[in-house]
Design a binder for these strands. Structure first.
Lengths: 171, 171
DNA sequence: TCCTTATTGCAACTGGTTTCCATTACCAAC
DNA sequence: GTTGGTAATGGAAACCAGTTGCAATAAGGA
């Protein structure tokens, strides 16, 4: 068990350092949390994490998660996912360098992408405003190829219907 | 009272149409809500709105607000303000057609902008993915000119410190 | 090993939001 | 103007994610 190399090894060290600097302790529970967080390459909620840990047989309480995730955020290992209706969602930072999303209003699928043109345009804007960007998030809502071919009518949905349609997604 | 021209006249008509299309009714309460929402050109919370109405002597219940604001969102007249920690905030849309945001992690100020290069790049991506975009949202978090000049250290803040700084803003 | 202090789990609590249900208002047909 | 069907409303209760208090436990330096 100790011999297996985990994706969590690096974050573990980072976090240990962070804790030490604040006079906090690296506990078993914290190790377990980090392992889980870095094992999964996806957004997660407090509850997702809780359930995943339970399924593994770990019995940490939710309180412990609620107390420790903010520390992980502070340490820079994870971040809250900003944006409408992604409240309470987290993602880890390491090995998840950057991505934006296309979100289908019909099937809910999220397509990740990156685009250098986009980044360039953003840099321009920031420069123009004397703004030092640290992190950004772009979401484009619409209809994916699959859904469009199934239901061509949605191809030219007006803006208002978009707002209405997106409602479905509010948790 | 009837003769006074309100900024809310146009949204009122839009909303009336929206309601009609769904077999819903334009009530006194709904009129009052719209008037208030379009009188104030700023983000507001459910509670802000409630208090403002009470101060005016209107006695709608919170329940009514909680039931009607989602309708206003659906109708496209207002929207939820996206972004970390602006959960539960709304803004009206009219005269506010499209904008993305630069959000300062230090002072919380939001700078609105639009950029055609950005839109073009987005269109490209969508085309590449066979995705029909309907609506998008971009937020860039970082440090604004004002805060940077006050505290030059943040100019090249690493990702971790940025996340840490943003924590302060969690209500 | 001991001792101090951080950490944890449970349960109680909080604040924002939603639901339930009885009452009231709207509005179209008579 | 009256009536009847249906939507809208208010207040209280329920709900839920997240937080806090407190007693028991565990970490880790002396």
């Amino acid at each position: 068990m100790n011999s297996k190399k985990h994706a969590a090894d690096e974050p573990l060290i980072t976090f240990a350092r962070f804790l030490e600097a604040r006079g906090l302790r690296m506990t078993r529970d914290r190790r377990v949390i980090i392992e889980q967080v870095f094992e999964v390459h996806a957004h997660f909620t407090m509850d997702d994490l809780f359930v995943a840990l339970r399924l593994k047989g770990e019995r940490l309480s939710k309180t412990t998660l609620y107390r420790n995730l903010p520390l992980l955020v502070e340490s820079g290992l994870i971040r809250r996912v900003p944006g409408e209706s992604s409240d309470g969602r987290f993602e880890h930072v390491l090995g998840h360098p950057h991505h934006d999303h296309l979100i289908c209003l019909e099937c809910g699928r999220e397509i990740e992408f990156t685009c250098t043109d986009l980044e360039a345009a953003q840099d321009n804007i920031c420069r123009r405003h004397g703004f030092h960007p640290v992190w950004h998030r772009l979401g484009i809502w619409g209809y994916c190829r699959r859904c469009r071919s199934r239901r061509p009518a949605t191809q030219s949905a007006p803006a208002t219907s978009c707002v209405a349609a997106s409602r479905k997604k509010e948790r």
